[in-house]
Design a binder for these strands. Structure first.
Lengths: 345, 345
DNA sequence: CTGAAAGCGCTTACAG
DNA sequence: CTGAAAGCGCTTACAG
């Protein structure tokens, strides 16, 4: 049952019906000059009447551009569902792809070597015209693969991680510093950070930035713990931070995403601690989730949708050759809400 | 900079290097019979040495199967980020695609007519080998389009909505009945439902099921309100339901997803109502989110990841022609947690 | 503007 | 198992 879809309509049929050559049809559908308005109209009408759509696979074989953008994500499948970041990022990417009539080729991979191999076969198989690379690690294996391939790419990550690839990034170092200084300004002297996956490059950068800020401010206590970004890990980390004696535990906690902050909120409630009186909580990314809790979550806000859109726009620049080059997107800004306040003691 | 990737390696080069014909290389890479182990090895070695990967676009032009599955999602981009459902569903789909070395072609569309057109050009352009269709409406425009096209498809939705298409669905009618009966068994006589988008077929089914269950149980009060699935809409609906005088307002609320239930929880807190003492809340879908709140959310649990996987498996059945046909996946089951209890009055 | 032709990189019979 | 050939449906010069 591989389909009974009658005799396939091809460019030849359209040309015959419009009384022109195949070449003319091709010109019309690729919006190239050299045809009169009248001819163009006749061609489009014929195509419409026959229900013809150009075969993208034939088109790309013949050397035209491929209107598909690849995105491989390397995180455990079961964790993706909850991270609002990805879907929002993807929807931002999509919003730009749609303008270019492009689609996203999405693949979940187990590790970066698999991803590197995938990129190579996608590109060599002419399945994609370019790719977005996310979640960079130090000494990332994708850098040496993408470069010699000639694959148009935009790397989402700090230039210190992405080598020679065109990259778009958020200035995590500055943002972490701002988060810590804000909490310190409220009077907090013992601050913790529940970070993301230790293997990720941006986690490494944030960790260093937190250390530096804590040192610069001469904090009395500074803790950092790595997680896998899941709510459960965030809950565990929070529980362990808050079980110390009141005088020894943090009075403020910064989270690397918002789902862990939500989990932290619930752990505080479960332990009988009031937010923000007993402990201040500061989320990251700031999806809609942060406004749905009680109290609402203060957060380092980040236009993730816009981030995705900018990455896609940059990729189209790289593909067409008139790229703007690497650049940061706006640094996350502090959005104070109900979960942060001066410490009560 | 459309890439300087040297002279492209083709099947011809591999054949030459392995000392065989192009046809033999093709047979080897498509795992077809007719080659000795030794020849096969020689071919794979040559391909590896040259870094060759078959051009999927040439392959599919030549008539072979296309290893790409389409998925168009028709919801406002900004709303997708927060709905854990989709990412979990997609990750379930991906888990099966990966086994088949397939990728997902994802596209956000504005309306179903655009989606119908997209399916047609994806299929005619040989961009996809099949597609997954979600979010069915009554008299869905995709049904009459997909059928005559011969496009292999799996429709996610109740057969009453998906016509002649192979479909996989959850029995929402039974699940809604179970949810209402559970709350009634706890002693609730005034129950509300905060539903999803009214235009969606499954919302219509759930609405009817709720009415029926309420009638069968002779509830003293039964409310239903439609939303857009967003947390904000869920919060608004909850607020309006709970502002009535204590004797007139619902003592239990069922939500059509979990994000709205989280929002409801926070509205109750904001209004000074205790959950579950003053009002019981029951979520739907049951992502990780439900275990991260305080109290934890009782929910109609649903293995969304498994659902996506089953849909993908079914699609591969349709594509290969030995499909199992339409069938339901397990009905969501009640998972009681901290947000439901007998009414206190 | 047209028309005939070559070529993209495969797969698929078909004769050996 | 091999080899030569046709064909998939386009695009891209090229001569008119």
């Amino acid at each position: 049952m591989t389909a009974l879809h009658g005799p396939r309509v091809t460019i030849k049929d359209v040309a015959a019906r419009a009384g022109v050559s195949k070449g003319a049809v091709s010109l019309a559908f690729n919006h190239k000059p050299g045809l009169s308005e009248a001819t163009r109209d006749r061609i489009f009408r014929a195509a419409r009447e026959l229900g013809w759509a150009p075969s993208l696979t034939a088109r790309s074989l013949a050397g035209a551009r491929v209107d598909v953008v690849g995105l491989a994500i390397c995180r455990p499948a079961r964790m993706l569902g909850l991270e609002p970041f990805y879907m929002e990022f993807v929807s931002g990417v999509e919003s730009v792809l749609t303008e270019h009539s492009s689609s996203l080729l999405l693949r979940l991979v187990k590790n970066l070597d698999e991803e590197a191999g995938l990129l190579e076969s996608w590109w060599k198989g002419r399945q994609i015209g370019g790719s977005i690379l996310v979640d960079f690690r130090e000494d990332d294996p994708r850098v040496p693969v993408a470069e010699p391939l000639g694959l148009p790419v935009v790397a989402v990550g700090h230039p210190s991680l992405t080598g020679s690839l065109t990259s778009v990034w958020t200035d995590d170092t500055t943002a972490v510093g701002e988060a810590v200084r804000y909490l310190a300004a409220l009077g907090h002297r013992r601050i913790a950070r529940v970070g993301g996956a230790a293997a990720l490059g941006h986690t490494v950068l944030r960790t260093a930035a937190f250390d530096e800020a804590a040192k610069a401010l001469g904090l009395a206590g500074a803790w950092q713990v790595a997680t896998d970004f899941s709510g459960e890990a965030g809950a565990r980390a929070t529980r362990s931070l808050l079980t110390a004696a009141p005088a020894d535990r943090p009075t403020a906690i910064v989270y690397d995403n918002d789902i862990m902050a939500v989990a932290g909120l619930s752990v505080a409630a479960e332990m009988g601690l009031k937010v923000p009186e007993d402990v201040s909580l500061l989320a990251w990314d700031d999806s809609q989730l942060c406004r749905l809790t009680h109290p609402t979550l203060s957060a380092m806000s980040h236009d993730v949708h816009g981030f995705g859109a900018e990455v896609a726009r940059t990729l189209f620049g790289v593909i067409s050759g008139d790229g703007t080059g690497s650049h940061p997107v706006p640094t996350p800004v502090l959005t104070p809400r109900g979960s942060t306040a001066p410490p009560s003691r």
